[in-house]
Measured scan of single mutants.
Amino acid sequence: LVRYRTISKIPQITLNFVDLKGDPFLASPTSDREIIAPKIKERTHNVTEKVTQVLSLGADVLPEYKLQAPRIHRWTILHYSPFKAVWDWLILLLVIYTAVFTPYSAAFLLKETEEGPPATECGYACQPLAVVDLIVDIMFIVDILINFRTTYVNANEEVVSHPGRIAVHYFKGWFLIDMVAAIPFDLLIFGSGSEELIGLLKTARLLRLVRVARKLDRYSEYGAAVLFLLMCTFALIAHWLACIWYAIGNMEQPHMDSRIGWLHNLGDQIGKPYNSSGLGGPSIKDKYVTALYFTFSSLTSVGFGNVSPNTNSEKIFSICVMLIGSLMYASIFGNVSAIIQRLYSGTARYHTQMLRVREFIRFHQIPNPLRQRLEEYFQHAWSYTNGIDMNAVLKGFPECLQADICLHLNRSLLQHCKPFRGATKGCLRALAMKFKTTHAPPGDTLVHAGDLLTALYFISRGSIEILRGDVVVAILGKNDIFGEPLNLYARPGKSNGDVRALTYCDLHKIHR
């Protein structure tokens, strides 16, 4: 019993810090008490220290592992850092350059016999395009090294910054494609005289377009951006097909006994025919423009016929181009109408809503002055909100995010209106959640004399007048207030005048 009563005193000691020596009952000389009392004092002292730490809000209350900052290894790049964003855009520009100039170089340097010394005699450094290609190869190699040090988000939505895990993730992902696209074939085969082989191998750079397509997928929600990307894709495919079309004609031209190829026909049409040795002929500019003209006309199913396939190889390629053109029509131009419709969806919704308003007016036989006010209010409210119901949009977000959005939407009023000066951010967040926005066209009466005042109004834009009878008592403008002081009276009061809008007004109100 003594032991039980001794232990039962522990909660009292913990909360009230009572010393055991003052209790005459606990001072009985028993061996059990002498053993338990020192333990009680020690526990009391420890609990006292913990309570003191909690009340003082000291940093040592938290466990040590929670006080440590997340460790980022040296030379690790955050995937959302500004440097990584700028670097990704730079790589994107280099990939676009590669997609345009690599097929052009591979096709127009394929057994090209233009006048001038061969590239091997001039030297590697004197070729501007080769120098640019070398810079692109170096940048792609540097990009691989950067990807080995860039964080990523795993399946659990955690940012991984450990170098080993980053390397394994990159090896399992895009490393092989990036490595093949970054191989400097110019340096590996330079001086061997195989410019045709170098041009063909350099087309491996186009593998990076797969990554670019995935990154550009984030802009699919913007109709104008999608339309622009589709047109660029169409032009890029036409450019690639033009390079292939020229390569076919250029390879067949020296081996044909009869002059029936499209390059021969082009030379005869523009007065620059090929001679018996295969030299001469149109310039590279004429060849490229004509090839691009043929691919565009074939892809769009126009086909004027002034550039036509004559050999079997050219006919087979033309059939493939027609098939590609039909697929592009289905996948690209078939979506253009939907994209344009999405661009004008706001206008369509406006006309639909206006039609419903006019049908309501016609069905209920609203008189002319009231009908005009109804239409003007709808037009003004639509121009202010673009038909978007803010309350319906915010309803799907958590309250903390709703408060931040409301604070942002009402920031101008909260910053410049005098009653809100000096208020804490928590108070402003709470008030912003209570605001209701209303609009009024010129001549609209917001409050009639004798109406119950259940709200306090803040003028965000425009001006109003307060009338008693036919006498203008006051004219209020931006950041002015009218209405009933909230919670100042037990019952809502009545208006002693009319409140009429002089201009288009936007008002925020808080109800009782």
Rank of each mutant, 00 (worst) to 15 (best):
E64G: 10
Y65T: 07
Y65C: 14
K66W: 08
L67K: 03
L67Y: 04
Q68H: 13
P70F: 10
I72S: 06
I72Q: 14
I77P: 01
Y80I: 11
P82G: 14
D88Y: 01
W89A: 03
L90R: 01
L90P: 01
I91Q: 01
L92C: 05
L94H: 03
L94V: 10
L94R: 01
Y97V: 01
S105Q: 15
S105V: 05
A106I: 11
A106K: 01
A107P: 01
L110D: 15
K111D: 11
K111T: 05
E112M: 06
E114L: 08
E114W: 01
E115H: 05
G116E: 05
G116I: 08
P117W: 06
P117T: 12
P118D: 03
T120A: 08
E121H: 15
E121A: 14
G123Q: 01
Y124W: 05
Y124H: 01
Y124A: 05
C126A: 01
C126S: 01
C126V: 01
C126L: 02
P128S: 05
P128G: 05
A130M: 05
V131L: 14
V132I: 05
V132R: 01
V132H: 01
V132Q: 01
I135S: 03
D137W: 01
M139W: 01
M139F: 14
V142I: 15
I144E: 01
L145R: 01
T150Y: 01
A155M: 12
N156E: 12
N156I: 05
E157L: 14
V160A: 03
S161R: 08
S161D: 14
H162E: 09
P163E: 01
G164K: 13
I166F: 01
A167L: 05
V168D: 06
V168L: 14
H169P: 01
F171I: 14
K172T: 08
K172F: 09
W174E: 01
F175C: 04
L176E: 01
L176C: 13
V180E: 01
V180S: 07
A181Y: 01
A182G: 13
I183A: 10
I183T: 06
I183Q: 03
F185P: 01
F185Y: 08
D186G: 14
D186I: 09
D186E: 13
L188M: 12
L188G: 11
L188E: 07
I189N: 13
F190Y: 13
G191M: 03
G193A: 06
S194F: 15
E195G: 14
E195A: 15
E195F: 15
E196Q: 15
L197K: 07
I198P: 10
G199V: 09
G199H: 12
L200V: 04
L200Q: 03
L200G: 04
T203H: 03
T203S: 05
A204D: 01
A204W: 01
R208P: 03
R211V: 01
R214Y: 05
R214P: 06
K215S: 08
K215A: 04
Y219M: 10
E221W: 04
E221V: 01
E221N: 06
Y222A: 10
G223Q: 06
G223K: 04
A224E: 09
V226K: 10
V226A: 14
L227K: 01
L227S: 01
L227W: 01
F228G: 11
L229R: 01
L230R: 01
L230F: 12
C232Y: 01
T233R: 04
T233G: 14
T233K: 04
F234I: 01
A235K: 01
H239A: 01
H239F: 01
L241K: 01
L241C: 05
A242V: 01
W245T: 01
A247M: 10
I248A: 01
N250D: 01
M251Y: 13
E252P: 01
P254R: 14
M256S: 15
D257R: 08
D257A: 11
S258W: 11
R259H: 14
R259T: 12
W262T: 01
W262G: 01
L263T: 01
L263I: 05
L263M: 01
H264K: 06
N265Q: 14
G267C: 04
G267F: 04
I270V: 03
I270D: 01
G271N: 03
G271L: 01
K272P: 01
P273E: 01
Y274K: 01
N275T: 09
S276D: 14
G280Y: 01
G280W: 01
G280F: 01
K285Y: 14
K285E: 11
K287E: 01
A291L: 01
L292C: 01
L292K: 01
Y293I: 01
F294T: 01
F294L: 01
F294Q: 01
T295P: 01
T295F: 01
F296E: 01
F296V: 13
S298Q: 14
L299I: 03
T300A: 04
T300W: 01
V302Y: 01
G305K: 01
N306F: 01
V307I: 15
V307A: 01
S308E: 01
S308H: 03
S308W: 01
N310D: 03
S313N: 14
S313D: 05
M322T: 07
M322A: 04
I324L: 13
G325H: 01
G325Q: 03
S326E: 04
S326L: 07
M328E: 03
S331H: 01
G334S: 03
G334A: 08
V336S: 03
S337D: 01
I340Q: 03
I340K: 03
I340R: 03
Q341E: 06
Y344S: 11
Y344R: 04
S345I: 09
G346A: 11
G346I: 05
T347A: 10
T347R: 10
A348I: 06
R349Q: 04
H351W: 15
T352F: 11
Q353N: 03
Q353W: 04
V357I: 08
R358M: 04
R358P: 03
R358Q: 07
F360R: 03
R362V: 03
R362I: 03
H364C: 04
H364T: 06
I366P: 01
I366E: 02
P367S: 04
P367K: 13
P369I: 02
P369H: 03
R371F: 01
R371Y: 01
Q372K: 07
L374Q: 01
E375V: 10
E376M: 06
E376P: 01
Y377R: 05
A381N: 13
A381E: 10
A381F: 05
A381P: 03
W382K: 05
Y384C: 06
Y384K: 15
N386D: 04
N386M: 10
I388P: 04
M390I: 05
M390C: 10
M390G: 05
L394K: 02
L394D: 01
G396D: 15
G396S: 15
F397A: 03
F397L: 08
F397V: 08
C400Y: 10
L401F: 04
A403T: 05
I405V: 08
I405Y: 01
H408G: 02
L409P: 02
L409R: 03
L409T: 08
N410P: 03
N410V: 07
N410F: 09
L414D: 01
C417R: 06
K418M: 08
K418G: 09
K418Q: 06
P419E: 08
F420E: 01
R421Q: 13
R421N: 07
A423M: 06
T424G: 13
T424M: 03
K425R: 09
G426M: 03
R429Y: 03
A430Y: 07
L431D: 01
L431Y: 01
A432L: 06
F435L: 09
F435M: 11
K436V: 09
T437R: 09
T438A: 11
T438H: 08
T438V: 12
H439Q: 15
A440Y: 05
A440E: 04
P441T: 08
P442R: 06
T445G: 02
T445N: 04
L446A: 02
V447Y: 12
H448F: 06
H448C: 07
H448M: 04
A449H: 12
